[in-house]
Simulated scan of single mutants.
Amino acid sequence: MSHAGRPAEPDKRTLRRELLAVRNRLPDGDLRETAATLAVRALELPELADARVVAAYVSVGSEPGTLALLDALRARGVQVLLPVLLPDNDLDWGAYAGPDSLAEIRHSGRMALFEPSGERLGPDAVTRADVVLLPGLAVDARGLRLGRGGGSYDRVLARLERAGAHPALVVLLYDAEVVERVPEEPHDRPVHAVVTPSGVQRFG
């Protein structure tokens, strides 16, 4: 069973390289404009309107920007949880208390990440979330997400499943990153919605 997904891996690596190359060519002005637009679009989601706890992440580099959305959610009184990368690639969580509460952490072999500097709430804190915002590079017509390949969010999704938790799973992307098909593995689980600057697309 564990070997079932392996033939897809070279395809995933190629697709990741291509998508990252396009992202890395985006001008700074486009990145700022996209972040503001994504926040507006995402806040229209009924799932976020009703959410008390949202697990999110701080975008880095040319990722679709999340900070405007994090601040808007916090202004609504939502508890925003942000990930803390552990040495084994699993994720702990901490509460977002504004931009000043973030620390720039450089993990070996990776770009620097912005992580919450306050109290650690434990890996199971994510099971309290009403909505989980997942980073990704693409989502296909079935709602399957292509991640960066680190496996951290596969663990998060498995933890949610074990706990019987069913938050709304949402990905923020650029328009061109909603594709026809991404390589699939047996453990892949579709997301509920993707938010792009053009709007929201839902998956059944």
Rank of each mutant, 00 (worst) to 15 (best):
P197G: 12
G98K: 13
L137N: 01
G61L: 02
V54L: 03
P27S: 15
R52P: 02
E18I: 10
F114V: 11
E161G: 02
A163Q: 03
E184Y: 09
N89Q: 15
L146M: 04
G98A: 15
D71W: 01
A51C: 07
L26Y: 14
V195S: 07
R162S: 06
G150M: 04
H107Y: 15
R17C: 09
A125G: 12
E184I: 09
D92N: 12
G122S: 13
D28C: 15
V171G: 03
P27C: 13
A56C: 09
R6E: 03
N24M: 15
I105P: 09
G61P: 02
S152H: 06
L113F: 12
L43R: 06
L113N: 10
V53W: 02
L86V: 09
S62N: 02
M1N: 12
D188G: 08
P64W: 02
S117R: 11
E18G: 07
E161T: 05
R76P: 04
A138Y: 04
D188C: 08
E33M: 13
S2R: 08
L43F: 08
R202H: 08
L85C: 09
R181M: 09
H192S: 06
R155K: 06
A95C: 15
A168G: 04
V139N: 00
M111Q: 14
L20P: 11
S59R: 01
L70G: 00
E185F: 10
L134G: 02
A125T: 12
V191Q: 07
D30S: 14
D30Y: 15
A165Q: 04
R189K: 09
L70H: 00
A36L: 15
S101M: 13
D140P: 04
R23P: 14
V53Q: 08
A36T: 13
R155S: 06
P87H: 12
R74M: 06
S198Q: 13
R76A: 01
A112S: 10
P64K: 00
F114G: 14
E180S: 11
E104R: 14
V179C: 05
I105L: 13
H166Q: 07
R155N: 02
L113R: 10
L133Q: 04
R6A: 03
V126M: 06
H3W: 00
V58N: 06
